[in-house]
C-alpha cells in the first residue's frame, strides 16, 4: 500500500518493515510495514487484540520482535534488550493506565527521567519538570500525589513525564481509554497542542473524531496485520476495504 500524501523529502522517523511477533504459537504481528514521518501524527485503530499495543511495545523494545526490522532515523533498532535503553530515551511512551509512580509527587514523576536516566542536577530536572507541568496545565498540582489527581490530570502528568526526556517521537497506547468521559477532552487537547507544535506521534486510539481531525495518516489493524492505511479522509469517508467500514460502523462511526 502506498501513501497518498507522499512528500519525497519528508523525513522518516520510524519505519517498520515486515515486522513479525509471536507469543508462543500465537501470532500477534504477522508482517507489519508502515512509516511514521517527522511531525506527523499516525493513528493506529482496529479491534482489541489486533496487535496495536504489541506494535508500540516492540517499537521501544519492551517486547522483542521475531522477524523483520524497525528503524529509528534510518538506524535498525537492536532486536534485544541492551542497546534498547539508549533508543528508549529517544521515545516517550504514554500508557492506558497512566502508570504514574504513586510514591512520587507530580513534579517528581516528571523529573524522574531527567534525574535518574539523564542524571541532570536536581534543580535543572525540577525546572524542566515545572515547565512541562505548566505546559499541560497542571502547574498548581506539582506537589500533589497521583492518588489526589483525577484520571485526566494523571494522564497529563504522564504525558509531561514522557516529554521530560525530550523524545523525538511519542507513543500513545489508548491514552484516553481508562478515563471518565468528562476528562477525555483535556487529554486530547494536550495531545492536539503537541501535534500542532510538530511532535511526531504514533497514537493507538478508539477516539475516532480525534483520529479524523488530528491524524495525518491512519492505519487499520486486524489480527496482527494492516488491512488498510491512508489519510483520514480515505479511511473515514471512503475506505477501500470493506472490513474497515465494518469496524468503523461497529464503533458507531457515521462518517
Amino acid at each position: 500500500m502506498t501513501r497518498q500524501n507522499d512528500e519525497p523529502d519528508a523525513h522518516v522517523v520510524l519505519a517498520y518493515r515486515d515486522v513479525h511477533k509471536q507469543f508462543g504459537d500465537f501470532v500477534a504481528l504477522a508482517g507489519v510495514s508502515m512509516e511514521v514521518r517527522k511531525t506527523e501524527v499516525v493513528c493506529l485503530i482496529g479491534p482489541s487484540g489486533s496487535g496495536k499495543s504489541t506494535l508500540l511495545r516492540c517499537t521501544n523494545g519492551l517486547e522483542s520482535i521475531d522477524g523483520g526490522e524497525i528503524t529509528l532515523d534510518g538506524q535498525v533498532l537492536p532486536r534485544h534488550g541492551r542497546g534498547m535503553r539508549a533508543v528508549r530515551q529517544r521515545m516517550g511512551m504514554v500508557f492506558q493506565n497512566f502508570e504514574l509512580f504513586p510514591h512520587m509527587t507530580a513534579l517528581a514523576n516528571v523529573a524522574s527521567g531527567p534525574l535518574t536516566v539523564l542524571r541532570l542536577p536536581r534543580g535543572e530536572a525540577e525546572a524542566r519538570a515545572s515547565a512541562l507541568l505548566a505546559k499541560v496545565g497542571l502547574a498548581d498540582k506539582a506537589a500533589s500525589y497521583p492518588s489526589n489527581l483525577s484520571g485526566g490530570q494523571q494522564q497529563r502528568v504522564a504525558i509531561a513525564r514522557a516529554l521530560a526526556m525530550q523524545p523525538e517521537v511519542m507513543l500513545f497506547d489508548e491514552p484516553t481509554s481508562a478515563l471518565d468521559p468528562e476528562t477525555i477532552g483535556e487529554v486530547l487537547n494536550v495531545m492536539k497542542a503537541l501535534a500542532e507544535e510538530g511532535m511526531t506521534m504514533l497514537v493507538v486510539t478508539h477516539e475516532m473524531s480525534f483520529a479524523r481531525r488530528v491524524a495525518d495518516h491512519v492505519v487499520v489493524f486486524e489480527r496482527g496485520t494492516i488491512i488498510e492505511q491512508g489519510p483520514p479522509a480515505q479511511i473515514f469517508d471512503a475506505p477501500l476495504v470493506p472490513r474497515t467500514r465494518d469496524f468503523l460502523s461497529h464503533l458507531g462511526w457515521e462518517g
Binding site: R57, N60, L62, R85, A86, R88, Q89, M91, G92, M93, F95, E99, L100, F101, S112, G113, T116, V117, R161, A162, M165
Partner: peptide
C-alpha cells in the same frame, strides 16, 4: 514498563 520506557535500567 513505565520505568523502562523512560530509559531506566
Amino acid at each position: 514498563r513505565a520505568a523502562l520506557a523512560l530509559g531506566m535500567s
